[in-house]
Simulated assay, not measured.
Amino acid sequence: MWPSRSRTETVTCLACGDQITRSMAREYDKHGDRWDRKHKAFEYLCKPCHTDLCHYPRTDLEEVLVESGAGDTDEATFLSTYLQTVEERYGKLEEES
């Protein structure tokens, strides 16, 4: 028998931090494979934050973020590592004039 799909569970939007009911949230998988549900814990976005996201392909973004220590290091260390990783993979960044 299937488990109850009662959606009164409360989750936290990872973008804005609001507490929302699961039925009002969108699943987010930082590895980009939300369909493979085996042994997976999802994070959630509220509908407004999900709508505000860029829905273009993000190729290696999540991999680069994890590799750069996003959420595991202080901001300065993360930004330095992120910039170095991006430049190693894609070349020197150029500012638009």
Rank of each mutant, 00 (worst) to 15 (best):
F78Q: 01
T73S: 08
A70S: 11
M1C: 14
E63N: 03
T21D: 13
T73L: 11
C49E: 00
Y44K: 01
H50N: 15
L79H: 08
C49V: 00
T73K: 08
Y56C: 06
V64E: 00
G17L: 03
M24A: 06
D33K: 13
T59R: 03
T8K: 14
E9R: 10
A76Q: 09
V64M: 00
P57H: 01
L14K: 08
R37I: 09
S6C: 12
R34N: 13
T73I: 07
W35V: 07
D29F: 06
D74F: 04
Y44C: 02
S80L: 06
P3T: 07
G69I: 02
K40E: 02
T85M: 12
F42L: 04
E87Q: 08
R26D: 13
L14T: 08
E75H: 14
L93K: 06
P48I: 00
D33Y: 14
E63D: 09
D74H: 05
T81I: 13
G91I: 03
D60P: 01
D52P: 02
H55Y: 07
T59I: 05
C54T: 12
T73P: 03
T81S: 14
L61W: 02
D18T: 12
S80C: 06
V64D: 00
C46A: 04
E95I: 15
S68D: 00
T85H: 09
A76M: 05
S4Y: 13
R7G: 02
G32T: 07
H31P: 04
S23W: 11
A25T: 12
G17F: 03
E94L: 07
I20D: 01
L83R: 11
V86M: 09
E88I: 06
K38R: 10
E62F: 00
E62S: 01
L45R: 03
H39R: 15
A41I: 10
D29N: 09
G71R: 02
E87T: 03
R22E: 09
A15Q: 14
A25P: 07
E87W: 02
L14R: 08
A25I: 06
L83Y: 15
Y82E: 11
D33F: 09
R5P: 13
R34D: 07
R7W: 02
A25K: 05
C49M: 01
E96A: 10
T12Q: 06
T21L: 11
H55C: 04
D60S: 04
K92P: 11
Q84F: 14
E9K: 12
H50Y: 06
P48Y: 00
T8H: 09
S80H: 05
E43S: 12
M24Q: 12
V64N: 00
V86N: 03
D18E: 08
A70H: 14
R5A: 07
Q84R: 13
D18R: 12
C49Y: 00
S6L: 08
F78P: 01
L83K: 12
A25G: 12
E67C: 04
R34V: 11
G32S: 06
G17W: 04
T73E: 09
L61P: 00
F78H: 02
E43Q: 08
D74P: 04
Q84N: 12
A41C: 15
D29V: 07
D36V: 15
D52I: 05
